[in-house]
Structure formats: structure tokens, C-alpha cells
Amino acid sequence: MSVIEAQNVSLTFPTADGPVHALSAVNLSIERGDFVSFIGPSGCGKTTLLRSIAALETPTGGSMSVAGRDPDAARKARAYGYVFQAPGLFPWRTIAGNISLPLEIMGFSKSGRAERVARVLDLVELEGFGGKYPWQLSGGMQQRASIARALAFDADILLMDEPFGALDEIVRDRLNEALLQLWRKTGKTIGFVTHSIPEAVYLSTRIVVMSPRPGRITRIIDSPLPAERPLDIRDTPEFIALAHEVREALREGHAHD
């Protein structure tokens, strides 16, 4: 059963220079437990598509469903956790306090909150850092805390918008590996926006290649890679072939430029 479904979705922003077609005729179906990456150059609408799934944008055409209902109802039912490009931790709250924030808003009991905070801190390997303030943590640790926050209320869907884009490559590799482990452990459906080909290939079960003007899907590639992926899988011929295929698809989308 597909968890996220988009049929002929389009989204147009009115601007002073005329309408901008951020999304055009997008058809997509994401199955439960999929790890789907959205990749493409800037302006291809990958973030807009993710935000539409999260009901942070409203498509101007087509239909969309998330967890069996319309995206806004899914948002209100707290069907997804969203990880933004920046950690966005509140400086006046400790790490535990930050992770507990959505739980407070959602009305979890105090003991329920404490139990969940401890569990997700463990999940992102930040046990022992709950009492620290954000400025006391490195950028990578802050982003892991923000992932923990998105996981804390047990949404089945995790939407991530270039979560590691601001981090250096060494930290990014480690976090990618940790994210894969976390995905296997929790069985969540993940939507992941990136502009890095290796990152998309390493993480995904499906790669959605997008192109700009108007923002659209040019190809959806199913990954033949096994679920178990050590970091050195990136040196195998299968990985390199897949990365090549993604690169070709990106180039196709640019053919008319």
C-alpha cells in the first residue's frame, strides 16, 4: 500500500515576473518502508515537493494523499516528522528539552516524554547529551538531535530536506551510515531531499530525479543495491553504475538548457 501518493500535482507561485511553475505534472507513489531520495539541481522543485507532502505548501493542481488522507489532515494527525536543513534547535532549551518540545505541544505526559526522549537520544547516539545546550554541541550532533526530535513522536514518515547539506563530508558520511541503520531499525518511510549523487545512491531504495523549469520528475530509479550497505559499497561496480545512471538522468533533464 502506498503511503504517499501524488497524481498530476502542480504548484505555481505567482511572482512579480509572472507565475513560476515550481512543480508540474508530478506523479509519484511511495510505498511503506521506502527510502526515497529526491535529487536535482536547485530550482527543480524537490524541496517544494517535500513541503507539499508535509502540507507546508499547497499544490495548485492535482491530488495528493499522505498516510491515506489529504496532506493537511496528515499534518494535523502528526503523521510525519520533518527535519530541516538547519537543526533549528531552540538555544534556551537543553537538547532533551528541544526533543521534548513537540511532545509537550502534542500533550504527552511528563513520564511519557522522559521515556521517549531517552529512547530517541539513544537511537541517534546522543545518550548523555540531553542536559547540554545546543551551543555546546558540534553541527553534526545538533543535526542528529534535530533528527531525534523528529523521531520522538513516532510518526511513520520521516521527511528530510537536505539535512546534512551544511556538514563536512566526513561527518556527512558517518551520519549517512547512522541514518541507514536507523531506517532499518525503525522501518520508517523516508523522503530525503539532496543534491549529492553519492548520498542519494548510498541511502535510497528509490531515487527520484527531478529537473527545473518547470519542476518535474524526469526519472524514477529503483536501486538494485542490497539493504545492508557498508560505507565501502560505494567502491563496488553496482554502486558506480547506479551513480552513473543518476548522473545521466540529471543530464537528460538539462538537455534543453
Partner: peptide, 27 residues
């Protein structure tokens, strides 16, 4: 905008946004 989107993704009410985000940020 990102912090406000974040609150929106948790379906936070205006009161939540005020007490948890705007007020502490304004101090």
C-alpha cells in the same frame, strides 16, 4: 520561517508558538 514551519509541522497552536517560541526568543 523555518522555526515557524517547524511548529506548523507539529500542528502547534498560536498559543504554543507564542509561549514556546516567540516569547523566549523575544527576551
Amino acid at each position: 520561517a523555518m522555526q515557524l514551519d517547524q511548529m506548523r509541522s507539529w500542528n502547534a497552536s498560536r498559543a504554543h508558538v507564542f509561549w514556546f517560541l516567540r516569547l523566549p526568543a523575544s527576551l
